[in-house]
Amino acid sequence: MRTLLRLALLGTAFALATVALGWIAVPAVGVLWGLVSSAPHRPALTASAAALLAWAVLLTWTAFAGRLSALLERMGGILQVPGIILLIATLGLAGVLAALGALGGAEIRRLRAPL
């Protein structure tokens, strides 16, 4: 339960940061998460899942508020890949950015911790 709650809160942070500052905010939030995460294990995994979830929610909102499927079709046509691949790439991007940020943050935290 705590894990789910943590995931939801972190996802909200990723979503709000993206809305406010754009994609570049994702690794920044990831770094912060790595720094403060009390979870001893796999902060990168948690950050990655939360960011992915956050961007999935933002894209779902876009699909409801707009014409995402029409755009996917056009974009897929331009890049000559199925539109769904672009969606997956977008979500994957969020995951990797968050994970790399969280890894960096965790390493800083480790560096500051007593040997």
């Binding site: 993206t18 994609w23 876009t62 699909a63 014409r67 029409a70 672009l86």
Partner: peptide, 20 residues
């Protein structure tokens, strides 16, 4: 630049919202 392009709020996906 792919980062900005694929941003779900400010990137190309936003075009879907202004299409309606």
């Amino acid at each position: 630049p792919l980062g900005h392009l694929l941003d779900p709020v400010h990137g190309v996906w936003a075009v879907a919202r202004s299409a309606k």
